[in-house]
Design a protein around this nucleic acid. Structure first.
Lengths: 117, 117
DNA sequence: TTTCATGTGTCGTATATAGTATACATATCG
DNA sequence: CGATATGTATACTATATACGACACATGAAA
């Protein structure tokens, strides 16, 4: 998605109002990238970072990693690994649920969690 | 996976016993790559091809594209797109079903298909 | 037997990915 | 006011991805 950068900037600046340690430079340092790079990322001048960096950023900003990865146009590699182990089953599942409303999908999740298999 | 190439070679050579149009060169031509490249792919000398090329190859060899993509270490981009639209819901679903046996997952698929939402 | 097809070896390349390093102008704080 | 912190502009780079082009030796077919 195109608005990954600005969204990150919003999150960071919101946090900053409460805590001045959320400057671009300090966040960059904590997630292990150069400030100049994070600056370009936040302004959308470059593509979103790698999965690893995006996940660190999500934790830093107290966000759901899967959501931030999605905004970065990615799907976390552990989910991909699960799918790749049983491609047919999971492909069918996901395509089948493509149009299902959230509550229907979540009902399935709950049913499975209550383990009736 | 490491055995993508040899597996493709097996499939192709099996088909070839029935139909001599399944030479490496002819298959390469039909899927739109150079023979030298397909040769290297089949021997695992280079990484598996792109998603697009892998899908063409799957069709050519009458295989399930998702399965061949999985062997190539990939997840098809249309599945990824579905996940990215609702990352939290699908992430939870997939992680929840990680350890569920196939028949349990497929039961879910069937239930959903019979549309009770 | 010559011709044609087949598989492969070698070299090169365009594009994307994921950043680093340095320098600099402005803002802020003590 | 001076020191320090902040965001950004510019230039550069290393590695991966995904192939193409060409030449060549061998095998099968006509």
């Amino acid at each position: 998605m195109k608005h990954f950068g600005p969204h990150v900037r919003n999150l960071r600046e919101t946090l900053r109002k409460q805590d001045r340690r959320y400057s671009l430079r300090q966040v960059a340092a904590r997630i292990g990238v150069e400030p100049a790079y994070l600056s370009k990322v936040e302004r959308g001048e470059v593509a979103p970072p790698s999965e690893a960096t995006t996940v660190k950023l999500a934790h830093e900003l107290d966000q759901d990693a899967d959501v931030l990865l999605a905004m970065a146009g990615k799907v976390s590699s552990d989910l991909q690994a699960i799918i790749r182990k049983r491609p047919q089953v999971f492909a069918e599942l996901i395509r089948q649920l493509k149009l299902a409303p959230d509550h229907a999908v979540l009902r399935v999740v709950r049913e499975v969690r209550e383990g009736e298999w």
